[in-house]
């Protein structure tokens, strides 16, 4: 009697495992397949720290994500960070007299690009308020390969490091202001105005 119980229990368990196997291979799965673990497409971390041609290094891996256009006739523009989060505004001077202020948000082309919150920009009078992206928390689940499966594969042990590198992400905010508009920036301790080379 007990022997039958053991036998049937193990048979049921085996059947569940086989059903699960069939379920796994017969039905297509929708997963975040765009997160690439191959390091070939990922910049080396040290590149981000390189002081030479910093801007190009940064924008080299970034794409324009959002753009704001404002007509501005004033002589002075006050740039004001609008929240307690740290905001870095890279300013580029454009041709004088155009009366056009352009704000651009760049993001590194990564799987996270579409999941992040955006900057918020608003021009009221002579005050351009720039609100940094809201803090975003993302949760992912990832499988590490079973060591029995990758026994004969070389280089599998760097998996975690490669995964982290594929997540590296940055957002940059650029402001294009005509050369004849005077800039007034009053940081409240969290903002930084970085003046770039004039175009």
């Amino acid at each position: 009697m007990q022997l039958k119980f053991y036998r049937y229990t193990f048979i049921i368990y085996s059947a569940v495992l086989l059903l699960s196997l069939a379920l796994f291979y017969l039905f297509p799965k929708t997963v975040l397949s765009e997160i690439e673990l191959d390091s070939s497409g990922v910049e080396d971390q040290s590149d981000h720290d390189a002081p030479i041609d910093w801007e190009r290094e940064q924008l080299g891996g970034a794409k324009l994500y959002h753009e704001w256009h404002f007509d501005y006739a004033g002589a002075c523009l006050e740039v004001a960070p609008a929240d307690s989060e740290e905001v870095r505004v890279h300013v580029k001077r454009t041709e004088a007299g155009t009366g056009r202020i352009v704000a651009e948000e760049y993001r590194r082309d990564s799987p996270l690009s579409g999941m992040m919150n955006s900057y918020e920009v608003d021009l009221t009078g002579n005050k351009l308020s720039v609100k940094g992206p809201q803090r975003c928390e993302l949760n992912f689940k990832v499988f590490t390969p079973e060591f029995t499966v990758v026994q004969f594969r070389e280089g599998e042990r760097e998996h975690s490091q490669r995964l982290h590198r594929s997540f590296e992400f940055f957002q940059l905010f650029y402001l294009y202001v005509p050369g004849d508009v005077e800039l007034d920036f009053e940081p409240d301790g969290n903002g930084h105005l970085i003046i770039m080379d004039e175009e």
Partner: peptide
């Protein structure tokens, strides 16, 4: 891991523990 305004949490799973 976190950057300026991003925090990413990754949970790892593997059948290794079953083995």
């Amino acid at each position: 891991m976190g950057w300026d305004n991003i925090y990413i949490e990754i949970r790892y799973y593997s059948g290794t523990m079953i083995f």
